[in-house]
Amino acid sequence: MSAGGRAVGTDPGGEGLAHQLKHQVPLMLWLVFVWMLLWGTWSWANLISGSVVALAVTVLLPLPPVIGGARVHPVGLAVFVGYFFVDLVRSAALVAWQTLRPGGIGNSAIIQVQMRTDSDLLLTIVAESLTLVPGSVVIDMDRERRTLSLHILHVRDLADVESRRAAVLAEEERVVRAFGSPDEIAALAHAPGEAPVATGRRTP
């Protein structure tokens, strides 16, 4: 992947029509899809009017392209989605119980976790899924140093904090195995903080 050399310091808009199309077409397909779901029925009229609306939205309200895009690994995706829903049910039940029980909640904690992946898209997915699943809310993200700061509800002791940190890194690993490039999957083997920063950096 040659994204590292290409992406740094170049204007995303000035790279020709083909490059722009590559980033705009998935977005337009998604917009047409949402339009069809909103109408609830399939018809040619819906398809055409949806395409017009999608074209208008992408031309009038342009978004910066996501550098690199995502590769989907079916097995990794299945593992990620499976864990996601199990964790969602588990953490919802846990938080519901903590609001109901007479003792209330105990101590909470704010931890900083060193991430290993270096892609905007993957870090966004990690942050979104972390807020929904294992008892944590993302407070802040340091993009340069690749750290996430999370608020953790109900920790008992320092060992508990460390186990939560391990859970965050496990979640990151599942996301990278579901959507990451081969480089990024290889970077998982490095210890946090030692992973190469410069090679294959997928950020503008």
Binding site: L88, V89, S91, A92, V95, A96, Q98, T99, L100, G104, I105, S108, I110, T131, L132, V133, G135, V137, I139, H151, L153
Partner: peptide, 27 residues
């Protein structure tokens, strides 16, 4: 309902956000 209860019973904004996201989204 437990999400609403959490907003009342928890101590500060950060903990209330937990109640506002997890049980509410699953609900």
């Amino acid at each position: 309902l437990t999400a609403g209860l959490g907003l009342v019973r928890f101590h500060d904004v950060l903990t209330r956000m937990h109640a506002g996201t997890k049980p509410q989204v699953l609900g």
